[in-house]
């Protein structure tokens, strides 16, 4: 499914190439152009709300998402807790019902926003960081290039989801393992992108000039190459966020995800799927949050791409 981020990236730019060309022609500043792009505005706004939810989770009328209550398991949304809650308060209402351990689904979904976003952002950050370093090395150090690219081709040939399933289920399940397992299949794609940028820039006259006057390699990379990678990597990063959130949900669905102690939309759904017919709320609510978020990230990605880098697909 990490293949998803690549595909999205490849296809997105084709869509509104015409529109973005118009925008570019108007020579507005980047921020003005972004503000004029509907996809960016809507996607960005939804993401901002989700980020707020994630940060403010404890203040949104939630209880401890791990607090179990066997006597109040499998309750439908709106059920009122007639016992005293764990924090001593009375009259707690299970807004989204409870799961099979009597945990409050509303609290789990809200806290789950946190974890799902952490997974998405960490995977994007990590894979870009690793991919950038490896890609730069590969693009500049010619004798290493062959080896690195063979390794990357090998990694790319393994379907991402299979690689992630194997990695997670064969090592101990934990937030860090899952993040790593989703990151690894993403890395080769970033490497290929960075490497292709490096290769194309090497040929530019101003870079050749810099080399000929004896600019040292690290300086060269920082001054001339890095700035050129920023726009495409931001766009690619957005798509990786979206695909990572989905992959996490799929891993959880297959039973090899983040431990159920830590709520994520994926594992709330995974635990809820057994009782889908009787208590659909444990699939529907987290599913809704998941779909809306991924939709927003995808829109943001499309918008950013049209605005920042309409020709990105040519580099892949």
């Amino acid at each position: 499914m990490s293949d998803l981020s690549e595909l999205r990236q490849q296809t997105a730019g084709l869509v509104d190439a015409a529109a973005s060309a118009d925008a570019a022609a108007r020579k507005l500043s980047i921020w003005q152009r972004l503000a004029r792009n509907q996809s960016v505005v809507i996607g960005g706004a939804v993401m901002a709300v989700m980020l707020l939810v994630a940060i403010m989770a404890p203040f949104l009328g939630t209880m401890d998402p791990a607090e179990i209550n066997p006597a109040w398991r499998n309750k439908v949304p709106g059920t009122e807790l007639t016992d005293t809650a764990a924090d001593g308060s009375q009259g707690w209402v299970y807004r989204m019902g409870t799961d099979t351990l009597g945990r409050d689904t509303y609290s789990r979904v809200i806290y789950g926003t946190r974890v799902s976003l952490i997974v998405g952002l960490s995977v994007a950050g990590l894979s870009i960081a690793i991919g950038l370093v490896v890609g730069l090395i590969s693009g500049y150090v010619r004798w290493l290039d062959g080896i690195i690219m063979r390794v990357m081709d090998g990694l790319m040939a393994i379907p991402g989801i299979l690689l992630a399933i194997a990695l997670v289920s064969l090592s101990s399940a934990g937030l860090d393992t899952v993040i790593l397992a989703i990151t690894i299949p993403e890395v080769p794609r970033v490497v290929r992108l960075v490497r292709s940028i490096v290769l194309s820039i090497r040929e530019e006259p101003y870079v050749e000039a810099a080399i000929s006057v004896g600019t040292r390699l690290p300086l060269l990379l920082i001054r001339h190459v890095l700035p050129n990678t920023v726009a495409p990597l931001i766009v690619m990063g957005t798509y990786i966020v979206a695909s990572a959130i989905l992959v996490e949900a799929i891993l959880s669905f297959l039973g090899v995800g983040i431990p159920p102690e830590i709520p994520t939309w994926g594992n709330i759904m995974a635990e809820g799927r057994l009782l889908f017919r009787i208590f659909p709320h444990n699939i529907l609510f987290p599913g809704l949050f998941l779909a809306v978020t991924v939709l927003a990230v995808n829109m943001l990605g499309d918008g950013l791409r049209d605005t920042l880098d309409p020709r990105l697909e040519k580099r892949m």
Partner: peptide
């Protein structure tokens, strides 16, 4: 599936410190 979290909750109420580790049955 649900036995672990219940054991954790009760042991903690009894004064223990716990570290619940989730894994598939084969592991």
């Amino acid at each position: 599936n649900n036995l672990g979290p219940v054991a954790k909750a009760n042991l903690e109420k009894g004064g223990f410190v716990t570290d619940l580790q989730a894994m598939d049955w084969q592991t």
